[in-house]
C-alpha cells in the first residue's frame, strides 16, 4: 500500500530517485502482503502446535468437561465471516469497473459483517462460563480464538481505512491496491477462521 501515492509522472525535472527497474511482474505491495501472510500462517502454526501437544500428545479429553462450546452459534458466525469475503470481492470488482457506489457499499458491508463477527465472539467469551485459567484446553481455546479475533481486528482496521478512503474519493479503475491488498488479508482471516472453527469446535 505504501508506495500507492508516490507520484511518478508530471514532474519535469523533479529531483528524486531514478525510476527503479521492475524485475518482477508481481506488484511489490501484493508480494509484501503474501509474505506477511506466510509469517501469519506460521504464527497460527505455533498456536496449532500448542493445540496439538495439549490435545493429542497429552491426550486429555476435548473439550474438557467444563467447556461447553456453542458450536451452532459459532457456525452462524462462520457464515457471517464467509459472506464478508464475498462482499469484499464485490467491492474490489466494483472498483475495477468504476462502480463507485458498489465499492462503497461493498466495503461498508464487509466492515459491518466483520464487526458483527467480532461482537458475537466477544459475547461468546462473556457467556461461555469457563475462564482461560481453568485448564490447558481452555487456555488454547481462548488463545487460538483470541489470536484469530486479533487478526479480525487488524483486518477491520485496514477495512476502515479503505472505507474512509473510498468515501473520500480515492481509488480508481486503475489504482485500487488500497482495496485489493486489505482484501487479500481479509480472505486470509476468513480461511484461517474455517481452520480454527473446524479444529476447535467441530472435530
Amino acid at each position: 500500500m505504501e508506495a500507492a501515492t508516490i507520484a511518478h509522472e508530471g514532474h519535469g525535472h523533479h529531483h528524486g530517485p531514478p525510476e527503479p527497474n521492475r524485475s518482477s511482474r508481481v506488484e511489490a505491495q501484493t508480494l509484501g502482503m503474501y509474505l506477511f501472510i506466510i509469517s501469519e500462517i506460521m504464527l497460527f502454526g505455533a498456536f496449532f502446535t500448542a493445540y496439538f501437544f495439549i490435545r493429542v500428545v497429552i491426550g486429555d479429553e476435548w473439550p474438557a468437561e467444563n467447556m461447553h462450546l456453542p458450536v451452532a452459534v459459532a457456525g452462524v458466525n462462520t457464515a457471517i465471516l464467509i459472506s464478508s469475503s464475498a462482499t469484499i470481492h464485490w467491492a474490489l470488482e466494483s472498483a475495477k469497473s468504476g462502480n463507485r457506489n458498489g465499492l462503497k457499499v461493498g466495503l461498508l458491508m464487509t466492515t459491518l459483517l466483520g464487526a458483527t463477527f467480532l461482537a458475537i465472539q466477544i459475547n461468546e467469551y462473556v457467556n461461555i462460563g469457563f475462564p482461560p485459567a481453568s485448564n490447558a484446553q481452555a487456555s488454547i481455546f481462548y488463545s487460538l480464538t483470541g489470536l484469530h479475533g486479533a487478526h479480525v481486528f487488524i483486518g477491520l482496521t485496514l477495512l476502515v481505512f479503505a472505507t474512509t478512503r473510498a468515501f473520500k474519493g480515492h481509488f480508481t479503475e486503475k489504482e485500487h491496491r488500497g482495496v485489493e491488498i486489505p482484501g487479500i488479508y481479509w480472505h486470509f482471516v476468513d480461511v484461517m477462521w474455517i481452520v480454527v472453527y473446524t479444529t476447535i469446535y467441530v472435530i
Binding site: 500448542a50 486429555d60 482461560p132 485459567a133 481452555a138 481462548y142 488463545s143
Partner: peptide, 15 residues
C-alpha cells in the same frame, strides 16, 4: 494465569 506449561492442568512443558 493460563496453563500452557502447567502439567497439573493439562499443559505440556516439552511443547
Amino acid at each position: 494465569g493460563m496453563n500452557f506449561f502447567n502439567s497439573a492442568n493439562g499443559g505440556d512443558v516439552i511443547m
